[in-house]
């Protein structure tokens, strides 16, 4: 009833004419119909997208399967989906894959979290001490353009072959770009927001806690998302170099013994776990930025 009343007054203002009850009802149902047709159009669009996505996947897997079975491609090199599924199922049921998955996920999460924490802390230090940021600017630029995985051998020599050095490689891949991204965001924050708290006599710590950090959450989250991918690069390369356990080790081992089913099925596991990690970050994003958005 309320809604209709407000609509009537809006309509009066627009047309400036006297309203007849029947006309008003017509308009209401007309607008309702417009909305319904808009919703059904959007609905159809989403359905079409989902159908196309599934069709593409089925087509790809089906073609691959057919090509492998009929020897259009060399099944020794390219394997095919049912062989991979068989391999995965076997190693999952006999339990032999889980230590590899556990090891790699542990390394990735540890390297990812350390890179993020260290990168954010370094960004905070650079923001807090402008002198430091001037001093370190050229070094950061050089470090950022250097391929960090190339440091792998040095970590292995220094930290020993194993978990620690792989975490170190992973961290080194993410930490510099994290520092630069977040520090740049810290510096870009609108001077007006800073002025607001400075006018209330805020200390530098309060300024950081009340403005700089919360205003940077969106950038921190998007850096996290990019880092999920980067961390996997670090872990897999690290495992290529040194590991005796892990999905990267399985890939390099499968390559050496010419078992490409093992290589490709390990890749499938990596894709699945990486997707789960990405979704966890997306959940964190919704939690941190609940309610607000940039204007």
């Amino acid at each position: 009833m309320d809604k209709r009343d407000s609509m009537r007054s809006n309509g009066d203002g627009d047309s400036g004419s006297v309203q007849i009850a029947g006309v008003k009802e017509d308009r209401l149902s007309w607008m309702g119909a417009l909305h319904a047709s808009y919703r059904s159009r959007m609905h159809k669009m989403s359905a079409a997208v989902a159908v196309t996505q599934i069709a593409l996947l089925v087509l790809f897997v089906g073609l691959w399967e057919a090509a492998g079975r009929n020897k259009w491609i060399d099944p020794l090199l390219f394997s095919y989906p049912s062989k991979m599924a068989d391999q995965l199922w076997r190693t999952m049921t006999d339990g032999s894959i889980w230590p590899h998955v556990g090891m790699t996920v542990g390394e990735t999460v540890a390297g990812f979290a350390l890179g993020m924490l260290l990168g954010t802390s370094m960004a905070a230090a650079l923001w807090w001490f402008p002198f430091l940021s001037r001093v370190f600017d050229p070094y950061l630029v050089v470090l950022n353009s250097m391929p960090k995985v190339a440091l792998g051998p040095i970590f292995i020599v220094a930290l020993g072959p194993g978990f620690i050095s792989i975490v170190a490689v992973t961290m080194s891949v993410t930490v510099i770009i994290t520092t630069l991204n977040i520090y740049n965001r810290f510096r870009e924050i609108d001077a007006g927001f800073i002025k607001v708290v400075r006018l209330f006599g805020a200390s530098r710590g309060q300024l950081f806690r009340l403005v700089i950090l919360p205003a940077s959450f969106p950038v921190i989250i998007s850096t996290l998302k990019v880092n999920v991918g980067l961390a996997w690069v670090g872990v897999i390369v690290g495992e290529f170099l040194v590991a005796k356990l892990g999905l990267g080790y399985l890939i390099i081992y499968g390559f050496q013994v010419f078992n490409f089913t093992l290589v490709l099925s390990s890749l499938v596991v990596i894709a699945a776990v990486a997707t789960v990690m990405y979704q966890l970050v997306a959940m964190l994003e919704r939690k941190l930025t609940a309610g607000w958005r940039e204007r």
Binding site: D190, L199, F200, G201, Q206, T289, W292
Partner: peptide, 26 residues
């Protein structure tokens, strides 16, 4: 007290928390 040309309300805070930011700082 100082009022700026733009409101510069913090988008991550509710209206109530925005209005209380000065109290929080002091």
């Amino acid at each position: 007290g100082y009022m700026l040309q733009q409101d510069f309300l913090f988008p991550w805070r509710t209206i109530r928390d925005n209005a209380a930011v000065g109290l929080e700082i002091s």
